[in-house]
Amino acid sequence: MTAAAAAETAQPRTERLVHAVNVTKSFHHNEVLKGIDLDVDRGQVVCLLGPSGSGKTTFLRCINQLETIDGGRIWVDGELMGYDDRDGRLYRLKNKQIAAQRREIGMVFQRFNLFPHMTAIENVMEAPIQVKGEGKKESRVRAQGLLDRVGLGDRGTAYPAQLSGGQQQRVAIARALAMQPKLMLFDEPTSALDPELVGEVLAVMRELADEGMTMIVVTHEMSFARDVADTVVFMDAGVVVEAGRPREVLGNPQHQRTKTFLTRLHSEHDHP
């Protein structure tokens, strides 16, 4: 690390849960993130919007280190992700330590990624038992509570293949919540769903937001962003084009790229 990079390691402030500074990432010389800054306070809901290929999913995956970043820093709850900073020199964390950092960050995927060989309730119980060492009985009770919460209390014994897409995604949310995360990441959680199933997943997410969960959501659902988000971040070509309150960014975009994106989106969807 250079001295300049080391100087950048400012102390994160405590009300901030996520603090990302100048995050860069390339895949085979193709720079997909060109210096992303993002701050998320506790209890905030941030929606990442932007055309496909803008880097929003990659950025989300960088936060819980499914991708390693090439430059910049990401702190979650004051903890530098992926590295140990000893007097400005960075030491890569071991896989075990990275796994420990991920425990407190829940992630929901576009394609659900439920474990197909386990029933719904086993999916929810798996991480608490295997990772936290929770007892089977206790974990089952909590898992049942979480399934109730996402409206699937009666589907615990079903295998994922026996559930609709919307139901699978709700189980996936329950599975992530079972680790009692302080941050939830949603990677286009409704993009793989039939239109009539989108609502049930968004409803669960709205409720989660109302309960004060800190959430970063990559989405194309403008109504969700407008109603639920505290901050909307518009990304394009690996940079943050603009960010702000949803009413400002969506209602009165300042940049041409945002305007173009929103107009195209409106013309594609019947609902604004």
Binding site: T119, D148, V150, A161, L163, S164, G166, Q167, V201, A203
Partner: peptide, 22 residues
Amino acid sequence: HFGRGFGNKAPRAARPAGAGGA
């Protein structure tokens, strides 16, 4: 045994739309 969750042992749930997010 190892095909559980993949096969069609149990009938597919005939409930494409769930009850909504409670």
